[in-house]
Simulated assay, not measured.
Amino acid sequence: MRKIVKNTVFTLLLFTLSAFTALLVYLHFFASDNRDLSGEWVAELDMTQQAKVIALSWLQDVEGVSISLEDMDSYMQDLTIQVTLNMEQTDHSAGTFYCKVLPESYDACSQAAYEAFVAAFQVLLAERLHMAGYTGSTDREALEALVMETFGMPAADYLMTCGPALLPSLEELQTWYDGSGTYEVAEDILTRQYDTGLPGGMKAERYIWKDADLVLLEESGAHFFFRRLPEKETQ
């Protein structure tokens, strides 16, 4: 009788362990991939460092005055361009997507970058005028009037026309980031494939889950991630 009870208990334990193991296998290989990814995601391209370095290089050519990269930190901050990713899940671990650079976000970033460029330029211009013995006003309005008189256009237009390009063109970014294609999820790695229109055809990118974000794997050499927008932000 005791042997029968032991065998019964052992059988029940073995059955429970097998069921638990099967559950873990399911959670690892299936449940982790069975996330509904449908919706809108957004990433931000940080243009701050690039814009600062390019503007600094140009401003350092102003004779008789000096400016450093640390000085540029007070003018240029949080210059970002948004890239949206719309995904539609068609299977438990696959779907389609459409990705694009937002033109309105690009325009806002460009405007902010050149406004900061103008502010730094006006400070250096005022210093240069004082060094040259200029005794008139060097407030923003007076400096803007001097630039208009000298170049026939506002300072912002002058820097955009005759100065360096602080950002890649919208067309360049669209060529690199815009596109549509398919994605698959396996073992918590999302792989998306699409045709960028560049020589070489198809492009593939791999992302991992980190908290609630999709983070581009470091093998690409870029720090880039998408965060999911709440429904109220997509309406």
Score class of each variant (00 low, 15 high):
Val42Gly: 06
Val42Met: 14
Ala43Met: 03
Glu44Phe: 02
Glu44Ala: 08
Glu44Cys: 04
Glu44Met: 10
Leu45Phe: 02
Leu45Ala: 13
Leu45Ile: 15
Asp46Phe: 04
Met47Phe: 13
Met47Arg: 08
Gln49Met: 13
Ala51Gly: 10
Ala51His: 09
Lys52Asn: 10
Lys52Ser: 15
Val53Asn: 14
Val53Arg: 11
Ile54Asn: 12
Ile54Tyr: 11
Ile54Glu: 14
Ala55Cys: 12
Leu56Val: 15
Ser57Gly: 07
Trp58Ser: 14
Trp58Val: 02
Trp58Asp: 13
Leu59Pro: 12
Gln60Leu: 09
Gln60Thr: 12
Glu63His: 10
Glu63Pro: 09
Gly64Gln: 05
Gly64Pro: 09
Gly64Tyr: 07
Gly64Met: 03
Ser66Ile: 01
Ser66Val: 01
Ser66Asn: 02
Ile67Phe: 08
Ile67Arg: 05
Ile67Gln: 04
Ile67Gly: 02
Ser68Met: 01
Ser68Cys: 05
Ser68Gln: 00
Leu69Val: 08
Leu69Cys: 01
Glu70Cys: 00
Asp71Asn: 06
Asp71Trp: 00
Asp71Met: 00
Asp71Lys: 06
Met72Leu: 09
Met72Thr: 06
Asp73Leu: 00
Ser74Lys: 03
Gln77Tyr: 07
Gln77Trp: 02
Asp78His: 02
Asp78Glu: 07
Asp78Ala: 03
Leu79Asp: 09
Leu79Arg: 04
Thr80Tyr: 01
Thr80Cys: 08
Ile81Asp: 05
Ile81Trp: 01
Gln82Ser: 12
Gln82Ala: 06
Gln82Asp: 07
Val83Trp: 07
Val83Lys: 02
Thr84Leu: 02
Thr84Gln: 12
Leu85Val: 05
Asn86Trp: 03
Asn86Cys: 05
Asn86Met: 11
Glu88Trp: 08
Glu88Tyr: 06
Glu88Cys: 12
Gln89Tyr: 05
Gln89Trp: 09
Gln89Lys: 15
Gln89Phe: 05
Gln89Leu: 07
Thr90Trp: 03
Asp91Ser: 12
Asp91Gly: 12
Asp91Phe: 06
Asp91Met: 11
His92Lys: 09
Ala94Asp: 07
Ala94Gln: 07
Ala94Val: 04
Ala94Glu: 03
Gly95Leu: 08
Phe97Pro: 03
Phe97His: 05
Phe97Lys: 00
Tyr98Gln: 11
Tyr98Glu: 15
Cys99His: 01
Cys99Arg: 06
Lys100Val: 13
Val101Cys: 06
Val101Glu: 07
Val101Thr: 10
Val101Gln: 05
Leu102Val: 11
Pro103Arg: 06
Glu104Pro: 00
Glu104Val: 04
Tyr106Ile: 03
Ala108Asn: 14
Cys109Lys: 12
Ser110Cys: 13
Gln111Thr: 15
Gln111Leu: 10
Gln111Trp: 10
Gln111Met: 10
Ala112Met: 13
Ala112Glu: 14
Ala113Asn: 11
Ala113Pro: 08
Ala113Arg: 04
Tyr114Ser: 11
Glu115Ser: 12
Ala116Gly: 14
Ala116Trp: 02
Phe117His: 06
Val118Gly: 09
Val118Ala: 07
Val118Asp: 01
Val118Gln: 05
Val118Met: 09
Ala119Met: 14
Ala120Asn: 13
Ala120Asp: 15
